[in-house]
Simulated assay, not measured.
Amino acid sequence: MSTFGVNAMAMNLFQDWQKAQEEGPESKKRPQLQQWCKPPPGWIKINIDASCRVDYDFIGAGCVVWDDNGCFVRARTCRIGGRMQAKEGEARSLREALIWIRQWRSLKCIFEMDVKAVVDAIHGGSGNSIFHTIVDDCVKILKHFEEVLIVFTRRSANKVAHSLAQATYFMPDPMEWLDIAPDFICNVIKDES
């Protein structure tokens, strides 16, 4: 297993342990959706998602950044040209997020996404498909980060990034927000609390 794989597994186990400590033993009796949790002190968390619709010639990508207090830092939407399978679209979305974040931060970043196949491929998958070519590009970009984790989360903990990816179908241009979240993101955050 690669260094990325070991680090991601450790972070996932740590977050599971933290949740278990907060919830107590009675929470085991009722099924729960995975909830988003803030990153450790000194880290940022970047949630990523893609939206692939067969009737469009692009995929929508959404990315939202949170600080270690769980506060909104910035967000971005963009369209990525071409028709592709969902797994390829998610990998392209990760690649776009890596490039965007690398422009202003390369230390203590957790990239969180809800497609396990992409996370697994980043941590050691290999192949010669278009998907693996995109993953290889992501791995090359990751080498420019000092401390970085790529982790899997359930869709229920990735709602804001999902909403951003969906929003690209209603926005003609890429959008970026700094410091203040747009209303539709605030509404998603409110619904989660």
Rank of each mutant, 00 (worst) to 15 (best):
residue 65 V to M: 10
residue 43 W to P: 01
residue 23 E to Q: 15
residue 105 R to Y: 12
residue 56 Y to K: 15
residue 25 P to H: 06
residue 74 R to A: 15
residue 78 C to W: 14
residue 52 C to W: 10
residue 27 S to M: 13
residue 82 G to N: 07
residue 45 K to H: 06
residue 90 E to R: 10
residue 94 L to I: 05
residue 76 R to N: 11
residue 109 C to L: 02
residue 30 R to D: 13
residue 59 I to V: 08
residue 108 K to W: 14
residue 68 D to H: 03
residue 41 P to H: 06
residue 35 Q to T: 13
residue 86 A to I: 12
residue 77 T to S: 11
residue 97 A to R: 09
residue 92 R to V: 05
residue 65 V to K: 03
residue 104 W to G: 14
residue 36 W to S: 03
residue 109 C to V: 15
residue 74 R to I: 06
residue 69 N to S: 14
residue 27 S to T: 04
residue 50 A to G: 12
residue 83 R to E: 13
residue 80 I to H: 09
residue 74 R to T: 09
residue 108 K to I: 06
residue 68 D to P: 00
residue 48 I to P: 00
residue 76 R to H: 11
residue 102 R to P: 01
residue 43 W to D: 01
residue 46 I to Q: 01
residue 71 C to I: 14
residue 35 Q to S: 09
residue 58 F to D: 08
residue 88 E to W: 03
residue 39 P to K: 09
residue 88 E to A: 12
residue 89 G to W: 06
residue 85 Q to F: 09
residue 32 Q to W: 11
residue 42 G to M: 06
residue 102 R to Y: 08
residue 27 S to N: 06
residue 53 R to E: 08
residue 97 A to Q: 04
residue 87 K to A: 14
residue 77 T to Q: 07
residue 41 P to E: 11
residue 104 W to Q: 08
residue 75 A to Q: 02
residue 63 C to Q: 12
residue 89 G to P: 03
residue 20 A to E: 12
residue 47 N to M: 08
residue 104 W to E: 11
residue 66 W to P: 00
residue 49 D to V: 01
residue 92 R to I: 02
residue 66 W to E: 02
residue 108 K to P: 02
residue 18 Q to E: 15
residue 112 E to Q: 12
residue 98 L to R: 09
residue 31 P to N: 08
residue 92 R to H: 11
residue 104 W to Y: 14
residue 44 I to H: 04
residue 96 E to P: 00
residue 67 D to I: 04
residue 109 C to K: 05
residue 63 C to K: 03
residue 93 S to M: 02
residue 56 Y to D: 13
residue 34 Q to M: 15
residue 104 W to L: 05
residue 80 I to G: 07
residue 56 Y to F: 13
residue 67 D to H: 10
residue 103 Q to A: 07
residue 108 K to H: 15
residue 17 W to Q: 12
residue 21 Q to P: 00
residue 16 D to M: 08
residue 37 C to N: 13
residue 74 R to G: 06
residue 73 V to R: 10
residue 92 R to W: 13
residue 107 L to I: 11
residue 64 V to S: 03
residue 59 I to W: 01
residue 65 V to G: 00
residue 64 V to P: 00
residue 48 I to A: 05
residue 91 A to H: 06
residue 56 Y to M: 11
residue 60 G to L: 05
residue 51 S to K: 03
residue 28 K to W: 14
residue 26 E to S: 14
residue 97 A to K: 03
residue 31 P to K: 14
residue 95 R to N: 12
residue 86 A to R: 10
residue 72 F to W: 08
residue 18 Q to H: 13
residue 49 D to G: 00
residue 79 R to C: 05
residue 91 A to T: 03
residue 84 M to G: 01
residue 71 C to M: 15
residue 89 G to M: 07
residue 81 G to H: 13
residue 41 P to L: 12
residue 76 R to C: 09
residue 51 S to P: 00
residue 59 I to N: 05
residue 96 E to Y: 02
residue 49 D to R: 05
residue 29 K to Y: 13
residue 63 C to F: 10
residue 70 G to K: 00
residue 51 S to D: 09
residue 109 C to W: 11
residue 41 P to G: 02
residue 110 I to S: 12
residue 44 I to R: 01
residue 103 Q to G: 04
residue 74 R to W: 09
residue 95 R to Q: 14
residue 28 K to E: 13
residue 108 K to A: 15
residue 88 E to Y: 06
residue 69 N to Q: 14
residue 100 W to R: 00
residue 27 S to Q: 07
residue 26 E to G: 07
residue 33 L to G: 08
residue 26 E to L: 15
